[in-house]
């Protein structure tokens, strides 16, 4: 059960870190210091998006398989709702991580 709690919190925590990083990168690019160019920003954001997204996807698959096993084995029934929670948090987090990357994907510069 502890593992399922971790599976629930991890994806959305990854979202939080990802959001913070994307916000910081955009602020660094678009601030007066202009620490990086939009091209470098785009490359960096792609990089920092792919890995958390894959991680969350892995958790999503793990949670889904766990749910499958619980359906088969009634002894695990008390865990069923937490497995559903882990699965749904992973789904929502995955969408949210992808959405974080949208601005960098669609805008070619800070002003558009």
């Amino acid at each position: 059960m502890t593992r399922l709690v971790i599976w629930t919190v991890c994806p959305i925590l990854l979202w939080a870190v990802h959001f913070g990083v994307v916000f910081a990168l955009i602020s660094a690019t678009c601030g007066p210091r202009a620490l990086m160019t939009p091209e470098i920003l785009r490359a960096t954001v792609s990089l920092v998006t792919v890995f958390p997204a894959l991680g969350v996807l892995a958790l999503l698959v793990a949670a889904a398989r766990r749910r499958g096993r619980i359906v088969a084995d009634t002894a695990l029934a008390p865990e069923a709702s937490l497995a559903a929670t882990a699965y749904w948090t992973a789904t929502i987090s995955l969408l949210a991580i992808l959405l974080n990357a949208v601005p960098v994907a669609v805008l070619s510069s800070c002003s558009g």
Binding site: T8, V9, I12, L13, W15, A16, A80, S81, L82, A83, A84, T85, A86, Y87, W88, T89, I92, S93, A96
Partner: peptide, 15 residues
Amino acid sequence: GYGFAVAAVVSMGFL
């Protein structure tokens, strides 16, 4: 959907 609702609440807390 107890499990769904919990997931929704946890994600809203973060988002």
